[in-house]
Simulated assay, not measured.
Amino acid sequence: MSETALNSELLEHEEKKSLESREFGFWVYLMTDAVIFALLFASYVVLSKNSAAGPTSRDLFDLGHTAGETALLLLSSLTFGLATIAMTSDQAGRVVQWLFVTLILGLGFLAMEMLEFHGMIAQGAGPGTSGFLSAFFTLVGTHGLHVAFGAIGICVVIGQVLVKGLTLPVRSRLVRLGLFWHFLDIVWIGIFSVVYLPGVM
């Protein structure tokens, strides 16, 4: 084996080891994020009845609006999955297309969430009104912030696919970002089930 080929093989081996290390670190991050959300859920459950004689969840929540948010986020998870499938088939163009659709759906979700927050604050139901609203804005706002960071990540990956193509590091980033995005879907289903559904029933 020539020296050039040997060096290339060693570099590829080191790159794979580096990516494995990053993937392990990502799983550690995801687990700590799950713990944070578990604590926020617990805080909300404890404070959900503490409305301080102010507006309650029944007064504020619009299940139709929340269903629209849920549909957008679940569809975005599907389109991200299609981007991952396109990646396994080495279809860089399709990856970019599906990631762009995912980005639009994610931004639509964020727009609906900000509209909901604005409407609640306009009614005098801001995060400082009661323990219930503090817990609500903290939990749902933290999830929204994660979606915003995920949207930024999608923009970065789209740029990398366009510039570098589907290299091994780009594929690894896409897979990790996909896990993060699907994790946010699971958290949102928890929010829908624990916060919104009991809040209007």
Rank of each mutant, 00 (worst) to 15 (best):
A67H: 11
F37R: 04
S130P: 08
F137Y: 15
E20Y: 03
S43H: 11
D62A: 09
V28F: 05
M87K: 04
N50F: 09
M112R: 12
L75T: 12
G131L: 15
M112P: 00
G144S: 10
G119T: 06
P127Q: 13
G159N: 06
G119C: 06
L82M: 12
S43I: 12
T32Q: 11
L184W: 01
F61K: 11
A122T: 08
V156H: 13
L103N: 00
F137R: 11
S51Q: 11
L184H: 04
M1T: 05
S76Y: 12
T142P: 03
T84V: 11
K164W: 09
K164R: 14
T102H: 01
W181V: 02
N50T: 03
S193N: 14
V101E: 10
L63Q: 07
V195C: 06
Q123G: 02
P169V: 04
W188A: 04
V45N: 02
E9D: 15
V161R: 04
Q123Y: 07
L99C: 09
G108T: 10
S89F: 09
A42F: 13
L11N: 13
G54W: 15
A148I: 05
I36N: 13
T32K: 10
G165V: 02
G119I: 04
L82K: 15
E15Q: 15
G93L: 06
A125E: 05
A122R: 12
G131F: 14
G119W: 04
L177V: 00
T84R: 03
T138R: 08
K49D: 15
E9H: 13
V163P: 02
L99R: 01
F37E: 02
M31P: 00
D59A: 04
C155K: 08
M201N: 04
S77V: 02
Y196D: 06
I121W: 03
D185W: 06
T138C: 12
L197N: 05
G141M: 06
V96S: 00
P127N: 09
S21N: 11
L72R: 11
A34P: 02
